[in-house]
Nucleic acid binder design. Structure first.
Lengths: 193, 193
DNA sequence: GTAATTACGTACTGATCGGTATGTAATTTA
DNA sequence: TAAATTACATACCGATCAGTACGTAATTAC
C-alpha cells in the first residue's frame, strides 16, 4: 500500500447504490455516478471494475442490509401475526409518505437485468429465497408457540408472502389508491390464520 | 394524402413492441428499432413522434391486447375457480416453456418508467385497475352462481389476485424453482373458497 | 533521500446516442 | 402536365456514452 485512498469506499458505494436504485442501470451515466459519489472516473474503475461491477457491489450492499432489516423487523415482535401486519403496513406507509421512494432496488434490478444477465438472475433470486427463509422461520415460530393454525404449510405460505410483497412493491410504483393495497394486505394476512 | 406509406404501420408497431418488451426503454436504441421494424429513422419520427411516443404507442397496443386476452380467458370458463386456476397455471407454464419470455410489458414499464414519468404512471395504473375490474366481474359471477362463498369481498379479492399476478410475474424473472410459484398459486387460490 | 507504488485529476478516445436536414421518388389534385 | 404534398433513403448533427492514457501528487520501503 503506497498512497492511501482519499475517499471513503463505503460512502461512495452507498451513493452509487442510491443513484442506481433511483434511476436503474441503463439510465444512470458515469457522470451521474461521479457527481453523486464525489470521486472521479478512474477511482470508480480502479475500485469497482466497470459500471456493471459497481452496480453489482451496490446491489449486494442493498440486499444484505435489506435482509438484515427484514429479519430484525420480523424477529423483534413476539406476535407473528402482528409482526407481518406491521411489516406490510409499514412498507406501504413509507411508500406513500412524503419522501420519494424508489421501491425495492432488488426488484428493480430483477426486472431490468435478470432476463439478460445470469449473474443478476442468480443474485436477485437468492435474495428472494433468503427472504422466504426469514418468513418461514417466523411462521415456524408462530406454529411452535401455537399462535398459528397447525394446518398451515409454513414454506408455501412464506413463498406466498414473498410474492405478495413483490406484487405490492411493484404496483405502488403506479401509485394506486391506497385502499387498493390496504385491502390486499388485509386479504393476504387472512392466510396467517 | 399524396404518396402512400410503403410499410404496414401496425406491423412496424408490433415489432417495436417486441423490442421494447424484451429490452426496456433505455436499453433499446433507435438502431435496434429501425432494424427490427424494417423502416428508417425518419419514418419512425414522422409516424410516432419520438422514441418515447413510439414506446407509448407500443405499450398501449400491448395493454389493450393483454386486457382482451385476460378477459377472454376468464369469461370463457363456466367455473370461476377453474378459470383462475387455469389462468395462473397457464401463465407459469408459458414462462417456464422453451421460448424466451419477457414477463409482462406493462409491469416492466411500471418498474422502469412510472416513478419518473407521470404519463406512464397513469397508463400502467389504469391497466392494473382494468385487470382488477375483470377479476372482480369474474368473482361476482361466481358469487351470483353460488360457486363462491358469499362472505367473499369481491373487490378486495380481485385486487389481491392482481397483486399476486404481478408478484408471480416478477419473481419468475429470476427463474426460481417451479415449486416456488406452484406452491404460491395453490395458496393464493385458497382465497377463492 | 531515492526508488517503487498507488491514487488523483485532467483530458481525451472511439463509439454510439437520439434526432434531423436534405434531396429525391411517388402520388394526388387541378 | 404542372404544382403540391407526402414518403423515402442517405448522410449527417451535436451531445453524450463508457472507458482510459497520462502526468502529477502522496505515501511506503529500503
Amino acid at each position: 500500500m503506497a498512497r492511501p485512498r482519499e475517499f471513503d469506499e463505503e460512502k461512495a458505494l452507498d451513493a452509487a447504490m442510491q443513484v442506481f436504485w433511483e434511476k436503474g442501470f441503463e439510465a444512470t451515466s458515469l457522470s451521474d455516478l461521479t457527481s453523486r459519489m464525489g470521486i472521479q472516473r478512474p477511482s470508480i474503475y480502479s475500485t469497482f471494475g466497470d459500471k456493471k461491477g459497481l452496480f453489482e457491489a451496490a446491489l449486494r450492499k442493498y440486499t444484505s442490509s435489506h435482509a438484515a432489516y427484514v429479519r430484525n423487523k420480523l424477529h423483534n415482535n413476539p406476535s407473528v401475526k402482528e409482526a407481518f401486519r406491521a411489516f406490510f403496513e409499514n412498507m406501504v406507509a413509507e411508500e406513500y409518505g412524503q419522501n420519494p421512494n424508489w421501491g425495492c432496488f432488488c426488484i428493480n434490478s430483477m426486472v431490468e437485468l435478470s432476463p439478460h444477465d445470469e449473474k443478476f438472475e442468480i443474485l436477485t433470486r437468492e435474495h428472494q429465497m433468503y427472504l422466504s427463509v426469514i418468513f418461514q422461520e417466523t411462521i415456524d415460530r408462530g406454529l411452535r408457540s401455537g399462535e398459528l393454525d397447525p394446518a398451515i404449510n409454513a414454506k408455501s405460505l412464506a413463498q406466498t408472502l414473498v410474492i405478495s410483497l413483490i406484487g405490492l412493491t411493484v404496483i405502488m410504483k403506479s401509485r394506486p389508491e391506497r385502499s387498493f393495497v390496504d385491502n390486499s394486505i388485509k386479504e393476504i394476512l387472512t392466510l396467517l390464520r
